[in-house]
Write a protein that binds this DNA or RNA. Structure first.
Lengths: 225, 225
DNA sequence: ACCTGAACACCGTTCAAGT
DNA sequence: ACCTGAACACCGTTCAAGT
């Protein structure tokens, strides 16, 4: 009996779309967006780069599939809430957290916004907007505005602090930006210097995000009553 | 006297940061984001790719500079308005139009949101939020929410219809997406099927964008009064 | 000081050849 | 039917050599 030894790069079964997408997600999480190359992916799957093309047409299709898988999972995690107001908050925070943990998801959503991932988020928001009491055409408008805001802020939050050279902690980054903006011309940038610079270093992105959601919900409420 | 003939690739003066950035903007406008390569840029400037590195450190610095130039110009175009409400609408539409005309500006803003371009937009919005009567910490929150919404929607709008294969007109694209979404499972996607699919083909992105601005302003107004 | 362009170290994607 | 991996047509960036 031979010892079953070569476990490292062993491949129990053939490739499949699912195995490729899972490996791509791992690679994206470990090494970031630039870390996902067909060569690195092929190495992880113990095959050649060409094999992947039998199952996936292109890198962009791979990114769509990876993003869809992650968003599906995040949406499934969301627990039901007692009021539409709370439910919308939960959805917003779920998306925010998913993109915060995986910046590449945000980048991908802004690259291909008509794909399944976006659809799932819009569906959840839409139902709660209906439950909130919004009627007629305003349902579409309200849900779209919420979706845009949630995605927009989540992406910008995730982009902050990344791609800095060298990578730094969030607090240090905010201090650095605030210090740079403090040097701006006082006549040209009064709001930045007087308001933004003061609030930037101490502020919490997540609370600021939620405050914006409340603002939009307050606006929606004025049209419902 | 020799005839001054070879005008095509002539270079009157040496390179400069400004000339490089202008040429980069031309290239981005004509050939899209993928069209901007150091080789194509060097060819247009009648030099070699290495020469550009004497003036610009990297491609990402080049994109930051190009985006900054375009946003500065767009902000300078905005005429003053009679009320803060109208002024915010003008700023929003100015940003929306600039990104609609140049999708690469949107992509770049989401890639490097702490750069000068974003700063200029936030400054304009902030001043109008102050004029609107918002006080204290709410100034930062309100301005941030508006900025996020404006940038987020503009980027998503610009991304729609691009990168489709083949490129199609906006109306056709919406019909295609609506048709695809109509086939979704009725139990899983009731909101998409009943509300979104019906509104999608006929709707105007720009009005929908403005409706969202009104929603946020209505929310801000409830905290001012 | 500024420019040149070959060279380096990569990419995504294709495809003839294998099993 | 599925996989392999060399090859193709590119990239951004560097750098020795020029002016």
């Amino acid at each position: 009996m031979k010892k079953a030894r070569r476990r490292a790069a062993r491949r129990d079964e053939g490739l499949s779309r699912e195995r490729i997408v899972d490996a791509a997600i791992e690679l994206l999480d470990e090494r970031g967006e630039d870390g996902l190359t067909f060569r690195a992916l092929a190495a992880r799957l113990a095959t050649g780069p060409g094999a992947i093309y039998w199952h996936i047409a292109s890198k962009s299709e791979l990114l769509v599939a990876a993003t869809d898988a992650v968003v599906s999972h995040a949406m499934a995690q969301i627990v039901s809430s007692s009021t539409p107001h709370k439910a919308i908050r939960s959805i917003a925070l779920g998306v925010y957290a998913a993109i915060d943990a995986r910046p590449w998801v945000g980048a991908q959503l802004s690259r291909a916004p008509w794909e399944a991932a976006m659809l799932q988020i819009l569906e959840r928001i839409g139902r709660q907007v209906q439950a909130f009491g919004v009627r007629g055409n305003a349902q579409f408008t309200s849900a779209s505005a919420l979706l845009s805001y949630i995605i927009g802020v989540s992406i910008q939050n995730a982009a902050n602090g990344r791609m800095l050279d060298p990578p730094v902690a969030r607090a240090d980054f905010l201090r650095t930006v605030a210090a740079r903006w403090r040097e701006l011309d006082a006549r040209e940038y009064p709001f930045i210097r007087n308001v933004v610079v003061a609030r930037l270093p101490g502020h919490d992105d997540r609370s600021e995000f939620l405050a914006g959601i409340e603002l939009i919900l307050a606006g929606i409420a004025t049209s419902v009553s």
